[in-house]
Design a protein around this nucleic acid. Structure first.
Length: 751
DNA sequence: ACAACCTACGTTTTT
DNA sequence: CGTAGGTTGT
């Protein structure tokens, strides 16, 4: 095969080792995507594997699309026939086919995070719980954490250790909320993101015939970004590959940055234990970056303890030194970045698209944007507030969702009184209570509204159901675009927006038009066989904004480090290198957390091909106040011989002065970023030490002293592992012995 | 039922 | 600072 010639020996090995379990440890910039695509091409061409039998799982649609495109370049249209997509999209597809085995209709809705939070909020309210204690975010992340580890609500409620943890956190009703949440999702014929994976596990567990079918179907299973899989995802792939054992995982433990959503770096670190005859290939030659950048990145990542051994090296030139940009305020930081881009672009004849500005949090984009706008540099923002999260878009989509699935409670709540039709909160509540308490489908309740609502409200509901029915007929008869246009017009939504002549109103109107255009595009695309509204909804439920922007204007890219993974740019600016911002204060509760932040820094630096800039500001606006900042500890971890300090000066003093007096400096003065000692009391019984922060309990051992927010000080008596769970029995001075599930426990190790 | 005002709260990352 | 949610008044 002549296409194998361009590969180096380990790359080639990875491509040609097609049978049996294989793990490819792919360092940054080592040509991972290339190996993956060649491998698939090799399977199809040399090994004559039917493309339908190859399943490739990625984390983002972008990665999947890119891979598909590149395979197509290699072997042509045959590539279309391989199964390729994100975990969520592939298994959503399978669940649609098999949904009835789980009691779901095949037109189930996929709830996004906003829907989930809103549902949790109503449940908390209905249960008359304190919404200060049961915040939607907290509850959802707890439920999500459980689902990712395959703990059902039944398991959750019955597990004494989880119960103890929740009680300790003063959130004893968590299990009840989880239960109500799942029941409600089911009644709404809806799944949240985690359910797509959770339910796939249930499907494979309870229906051996189904599992068998897919085991036979997918003879080759490939997992990209394996370091970011959670337990739920890992078990799915393991089960699928159990018969043929042709599982190939590709990843880089140094780039694992999604622990917050359940990714378990142990999956990659311990992969060998699950597959004793595992073949391991390491790709260590970096083709992307200069020696300086590779060295700087290596000097950062080597501080981490938990990692697989690997030495990333390159043949490339040394290139420029890493440039350290110091500035006195976030606005000045923006100006310096913008002027550096301006100069470099002119001096080196580069395009805007050769530059990227990376930051830790989305809110940091503002200052950069302003500076770029002032210098007339085109930029685009990746991520941030999603198009699909905008109110007007969610409203129209909710109409479409409700027409397709009348059980969808969240969609119903959005549209029942928008545009206003005289159905207020109390009427809505009556309807929902009727549906929930007597376990009647929502749609049935709506069709009998007159039996329990006052005349006026009942009439409105009746008009509403008539309208929805007409939309349903429209949807059955016509394609998705025509149906959606009818819905937008006849619901009155478009008129409502049209009448709003403010700038925002105009924007909203245009956004709705853009959504309609997207549907038109979907319908006109010859690759899509099913052109119904339902098909469109399924398609976009799992799309993020990142997948939408196809425009190829020459622009500087602004994004979070997380969304930069897998990309590369000639010149990269990592801004906001300040302690407590990066590494993030909120994140830092243990050594493991610091290591994840460090991996994030590693990911950021390794995006750069030719030149890397690290930048920090001494003051920054946050919550509308000017805060003092210190340079990040990470800056000290970079090998100093790789760095030089930026000499740019400009009128720093004057501009700093302006920044700080702009608006309301002076009276309150600067507020130190260092967290004040005052902390909220978390328990009545025991007030934890003022600096109480849960430690990571992975390395908890017998005899250690620990502190618990409710039970106070105690001593570790026993640590044991049960299945995938780790538990510790702790003797507390005032509360006796308690056994806690460590993954959920809030414990501080007393040094 | 709805608009106008007022207060509290949060900003970590994404499928 | 901006937003979401709650409370008041019509």
């Amino acid at each position: 095969m002549d296409y194998l010639k361009g590969l180096n020996p380990p790359q080639r090995e990875a491509v040609e080792h097609t049978e049996g379990p294989l793990m490819i440890i792919a360092g940054a910039g080592s040509g991972k995507t290339r190996v993956l695509t060649y491998r698939i091409a090799h399977l199809i061409h040399a090994k004559k594997v039917d493309p339908f039998q190859i399943l490739s799982l990625t984390f983002t649609n972008k990665a999947a699309n890119e891979m598909r495109g590149r395979i197509e370049q290699l072997i042509g249209l045959e590539a279309r026939n391989t199964w390729m997509g994100t975990f969520h999209s592939v298994f959503a597809k399978i669940l649609r086919v098999e949904s009835e085995k789980l009691g779901y209709p095949s037109n189930f809705t996929i709830y996004d995070t906003d829907d989930s939070k809103s549902l949790i909020k109503t449940i908390v309210k209905e249960m008359r719980l304190d919404d200060k204690i049961y915040k939607p975010n907290t509850v959802l992340s707890r439920i999500s954490g459980a689902k990712n580890r395959l703990i059902s609500w039944e398991n959750y409620i019955n597990d004494p250790y989880i119960k103890a943890d929740d009680e300790a956190a003063l959130k004893p009703k968590m299990g009840e909320i989880y239960r109500a949440y799942q029941k409600r999702l089911f009644k709404s014929s809806a799944m949240d993101f985690d359910d797509l994976l959770f339910n796939t596990n249930v499907l494979f567990r309870d229906h051996v015939d189904v599992l068998n079918k897919y085991q036979q179907k997918f003879r080759y299973v490939l997992v990209d970004e394996f370091q970011d899989t959670n337990l739920s995802q890992y078990l799915i792939t393991k089960k699928l590959a159990a018969v043929h054992q042709n599982i190939c995982v590709v990843g880089d433990d140094a780039q694992s940055i999604y622990a917050f959503r359940g990714a378990d770096i142990q999956n990659i670190l311990n992969f060998e234990k699950d597959y004793p005859d595992l073949f391991v290939v390491k790709l260590e030659q970096n083709y992307r970056s200069t020696k300086t950048i590779v060295e700087a990145a290596n000097s950062i990542i080597e501080k981490n303890k938990a990692q697989l051994k690997k030495i990333v090296w390159t043949h490339n030139d040394h290139g420029d030194l890493v440039e350290l940009i110091k500035s006195t305020s976030d606005n000045e930081e923006g100006r310096m970045v913008a002027s550096a881009i301006f100069e470099e672009r002119n001096n080196k004849k580069l395009n805007n698209s050769d530059f990227a500005v990376l930051y830790r949090t989305n809110s940091q984009s503002r200052a950069i944007e302003e500076a770029l706008r002032k210098m007339n540099i085109t930029y685009k923002i990746v991520g941030g507030l999603s198009f699909y999260q905008r109110k007007e878009i969610k409203d129209l989509m909710s109409y479409m969702r409700f027409v397709v699935n009348q059980d969808d409670e969240e969609a119903f709540k959005r549209i029942i009184n928008y545009p206003k039709r005289g159905v207020g909160a109390s009427s809505v509540e009556k309807i929902l209570v009727a549906a929930y308490e007597h376990d009647i489908p929502l749609w049935e309740v709506l069709n009998n509204a007159s039996s329990f609502l006052s005349g006026r409200a009942a009439n409105s509901i009746s008009d509403f159901t008539t309208m929805i029915k007409s939309f349903q007929m429209e949807t059955e008869r016509k394609d998705g675009y025509e149906a959606a246009s009818t819905i937008a017009k006849q619901s009155g939504l478009l008129r409502e927006l049209y009448e709003d002549k403010t700038i925002e109103g105009l924007n909203r109107y245009e956004n709705v038009q853009e959504l309609l255009n997207a549907i038109k595009e979907f319908v006109d695309n010859t690759e899509n066989e099913d052109k119904s509204l339902g098909a469109f909804l399924q398609e976009i439920a799992l799309l993020t904004d990142n997948d939408r922007d196809k425009d190829d204007t020459d622009a500087v890219t602004l994004m979070t480090i997380h969304s930069s993974k897998g990309l590369e740019f000639k010149q990269v600016f990592v801004v906001g290198m300040e302690e407590d911002l990066f590494p993030s204060q909120m994140m830092m509760q243990s050594r493991e957390d610091l290591e994840e932040e460090r991996r994030l820094f590693y990911v950021a630096t390794t995006r750069a091909m030719e030149k890397l800039y690290l930048s920090y500001a001494l003051t920054r606006y946050r919550f509308g106040r000017l805060l003092n900042c210190e340079p990040s500890r990470f800056l000290e971890e970079v090998d100093p011989s790789c760095i030089r300090v930026n000499k740019r000066k400009g009128s720093q003093l004057a501009s700093t002065f302006r920044d700080q007096t702009n608006g309301r400096e002076g009276k309150t003065g600067f507020i130190g970023l260092k967290r004040p000692a005052t902390r909220a009391k978390t328990a009545k019984i025991h007030t934890p030490s003022p600096d109480f922060k849960p430690s990571n309990t992975n390395n908890l051992a017998e005899g250690m002293q620990v502190e618990h927010p409710k039970f106070g000080y105690g001593k570790v008596l026993k640590v044991e592992i049960e299945g995938s769970n780790k538990k510790a029995t702790i003797g507390f001075k005032d509360f006796g012995d308690k056994t806690l599930l460590l993954s959920f426990a809030k414990l501080r190790i007393v040094e």
